[in-house]
Amino acid sequence: MHADLSLTVDGHHHTLTVDTRTTVLDALREHLAVTSPKKGCDHGQCGACTVLLDGRRTLSCLSLAVAHDGAEVTTADGLAPEGELHPVAQAFLDHDAFQCGYCTPGQICSAVGMLDEAAAGHPSVVTDDLAGPVTLDRAEIAERLSGNLCRCGAYAHIVDAVAEVGSEVAR
């Protein structure tokens, strides 16, 4: 069974016809040749497929495309204008926050979404005072990014990279 839908991906509008079983991840990669989000586990356990869906970090492998008709998708590739790097991507380069790079687009999208959540004052489970302000220390960053696995184990540098950008985000 098929469905017609539209998606705006990294600022580009697309209309497509997909089998109802198609996930947002497969629509991006297989139908639109947008290969920045990666397929890791395809079960919602690794975070490699993370994109910003209508502005919020989301697992594209667990999202059915047909249920997101009209959505705006931002991948790591579309975070900054062509030829420029988003501050989080630049920080990943500066801090050597990856080895093989497969998880990196998901890590970057997740970090960008997380920084917005922290700026909005959202607590995490390691926030001492649930009603108080958020300070993005290393424990907070690790907890808030725990949905993104890195099998090369670049976590220490990922936290460094996000901490650098996080320190410039409104507390």
């Binding site: 919602g44 975070g47 970090r57 997740s110 959540e117 959202h122 607590p123 725990s146």
Partner: peptide
């Protein structure tokens, strides 16, 4: 739900339980 001020102050166990579950991405979904 976890971020709602009323939940955080009136029902902190609920906010903590939500935040202890899954990941940031999954909690958004």
């Amino acid at each position: 739900l976890a971020a709602d001020e009323r939940v955080r102050t009136r029902y902190p166990a609920l906010a903590q339980a939500l935040l202890a579950g899954a990941s940031g991405q999954l909690r958004n979904m």
